[in-house]
Design a binder for these strands. Structure first.
Length: 199
DNA sequence: CATGGGATTGACT
DNA sequence: GTCAATCCCATGC
């Protein structure tokens, strides 16, 4: 491993594991596109066995990336407006992915502010549609290899290695709402929404 | 070919 | 708190 830390993307073996494990382990990792980068502070897992997942309907034109090899980006348009970024997980043939829901911005912040038309650091990437706008990720990035880029996800920086992870229910869905498949960096100020109060 | 439903956001009451 | 914007694609006639 001669590449500089934080530049090289995680390889397919990282994603070729149960999607809940990948979703938890992605907290603290770094998403990068060009000069812009941020630490992942919120993820959700989706799997073809449960109806909130796009892959629940089976293999279609839309879901073929989800059923493809692990370590690729699944990018789709939500509500006609927003591009949402996922990391395809589990072996090829299983429709599973991790939705990246929020980042703590660390590099390229001025470009992110220009793309978002906002100043507030907390508002730049605190939602799945916000972070793709801030990083300039669009539908053309669907299917790209997250190890080679242009969008990459790299391992945790040293100061994020021992980040605490909080488990919660997923946001914004109408099916399988009870599954605790949302993961957040404990105490982060950059989440899309607060963690739900304990029962 | 027509229809309907979103893994959301920002503006507004 | 409510609600519209707006694109892709799955489904059904």
């Amino acid at each position: 491993m001669s590449t500089r830390a934080g530049i090289r993307g995680l390889g397919a073996s990282f994603y070729d594991r149960p999607v809940l494990t990948v979703a938890r382990d992605l907290i603290g990792c770094v998403v990068r596109h060009g000069e812009c980068a941020g630490v992942i502070v919120e993820t959700e897992a989706y799997h073809d066995s449960e109806p909130a997942s796009h892959a629940f309907v089976g293999l279609t034109q839309r879901t073929k990336t989800l059923f493809g090899p692990p370590g690729r980006a699944y990018v789709y348009r939500s509500y006609g407006i927003h591009a949402l970024l996922n990391a395809v997980s589990e072996p090829e043939g299983v429709g599973a992915a991790v939705l990246i829901r929020a980042l703590e911005p660390i590099e390229g912040i001025e470009l992110m502010r220009a793309r978002r038309g906002l100043e507030s650091l907390r508002a730049l990437c605190s939602g799945p549609g916000k972070l793709t706008q801030a990083l300039g990720i669009e539908l053309v990035d669907n299917g790209l290899d997250l190890e080679r880029g242009p969008v990459t996800i790299a391992e945790r920086p040293a100061d994020w290695r021992d980040v605490g992870v909080t488990v919660d229910r997923r946001v914004g869905i109408t099916k399988a709402v009870e599954l605790p498949w949302r993961f957040t960096a404990a105490g982060s100020r950059f989440l899309s929404r607060p963690v739900r109060a304990a029962a």
